[in-house]
Amino acid sequence: MSIGMIALIVLLVIAAGLLLVILYVIGTYNVFVGLRNQVDNAWSQIDVQLKRRHDLIPNLVETAKGYMKHERGTFEAITNARAQAMGAKTVADAGKAEGALGDALSKFMLVVENYPDLKANQNFLAVQEELSSTENKIAFSRQAYNDQTMFFNNRIQMFPSNIVAGIFSFTKRDFFEVSAAAEREAPKVSF
């Protein structure tokens, strides 16, 4: 076997190896993009539900106001928490503010227990169902977001896909943590 032949074989092997590496990188990159989109999608789902919660609160306050004349403090707490939550910029901030808003809402619902007339009001019952479902949807979209994020984070940290993640700078995503201790104990607001 001539040196030329050996050189050719070595070249071919290197070329094949390179091709495999390139295919792997392309494949992994595409998987990462898909996963990242899923995480973003799950995040926007949380946003949709949080926005819905913010939209429902004025409705709730309006329905309840007539019945609960002496509870100005409770209404103010909700309205303030809502304003804070709507102004939050980062994932961590939003988590904190939404936790506080959840607390304010569950306190409000405890107060409602003292007003049987309000609890029998059809409009209030309808808003209550929407609100409690929105609370659930927030919890479930957070659950779906965290599931997706864990999957994504695992993939970009594991060898050898972490090298590809490093080259194209895919970075770890934050989990959506609930900061309020009360809500962590009972993840869902019960009405």
């Binding site: 899923q38 539900q49 169902e129 479902s133 949807k137 979209s141």
Partner: peptide
């Protein structure tokens, strides 16, 4: 039936 509809929506969100 708002409750049924909401519950289905909740589960569809949870399952993606």
């Amino acid at each position: 039936h708002p409750q049924l509809f909401n519950v289905v929506e909740e589960m569809s969100i949870a399952s993606g």
